[in-house]
Amino acid sequence: MEPAPVDLARAPAASSAAVRDRFRRQGRRDTAPELALRRRLHARGVRFRVDVRPGRGTRARGDLVWKGRRLVVFVDGCFWHGCPTCGHLPKQNAGWRVLRFWEHQDPDEVADAVCRALGRGLVTRGDQAIP
């Protein structure tokens, strides 16, 4: 299934050449909040796939994906995704649990939530064990 084409005629025009250039340079992956979460999960021994489509029938690429567990995590920028009420949620996710986090959230708390979703009951932060 091919992704639906983007209708550029309906997209709003950039307010200036500088804005257009900034949007074009904006990275899709490896953002600071995403890297912070990945470092914390990796330090806890959690392994994951990065920037992967969870299934063939979806255009979305998860920031972190566990295909065997059918879990996908998106770390969204507050500006780009309209935190907290304007974000786009999929209409159909074919049985996938979707965790969505915002860049302003504490990476340790996000890592705790991901570990809980993966069924890891005991989470460690430094020397301290947290149930």
Rank of each mutant, 00 (worst) to 15 (best):
D7K: 07
P33T: 00
E103Y: 01
A17S: 13
H88C: 02
F48R: 02
P131W: 15
F79N: 07
V123Y: 12
D106I: 04
S15A: 10
D108K: 08
L71H: 05
D30N: 15
R29T: 10
P3Q: 08
R56S: 14
T85M: 10
E2T: 06
R97P: 09
V72L: 14
R69K: 13
D51K: 01
V46Y: 03
R49D: 15
G27T: 08
A94K: 09
D106A: 07
G95S: 05
V75G: 01
G27L: 07
P131L: 15
V19P: 00
A94I: 00
H104Y: 02
F48K: 05
A18Y: 01
C83F: 14
L99A: 10
R100Q: 03
L118A: 03
R24F: 08
R69G: 10
G27V: 09
R70S: 11
T124V: 15
D21W: 14
V50Q: 07
A11K: 15
D127K: 12
R56I: 08
C115P: 04
V73F: 04
P12V: 11
F101H: 04
V19Q: 12
V75H: 07
A32V: 11
L41G: 01
H81Q: 04
D63V: 01
P107H: 01
D112I: 11
G126W: 09
A32I: 09
R47N: 12
A60L: 10
A4S: 01
V75C: 05
E103T: 04
I130E: 15
T85D: 15
R59H: 12
L71I: 09
A13F: 14
V52C: 09
S16D: 06
R53V: 06
W96F: 13
P90K: 00
V50I: 10
C78M: 06
V6H: 02
F79D: 10
R116W: 13
V123W: 12
R24L: 14
R28Q: 11
R61K: 08
C115G: 08
E2D: 02
L89G: 04
C83S: 05
S15H: 03
V65E: 09
C83E: 11
M1P: 07
M1A: 12
A17F: 09
A111I: 00
R24H: 13
A113C: 11
P12E: 10
V72R: 06
A13N: 07
L71E: 03
V19I: 06
P3F: 09
P131M: 12
L122H: 15
D30A: 13
F79C: 05
A117V: 06
A11R: 14
D106R: 03
D30M: 14
V46N: 02
L37S: 04
L37V: 15
F23I: 14
D30L: 15
F48V: 05
V75Y: 07
A18N: 05
R29A: 10
R61W: 00
G119P: 12
A9W: 08
H81P: 05
P107E: 02
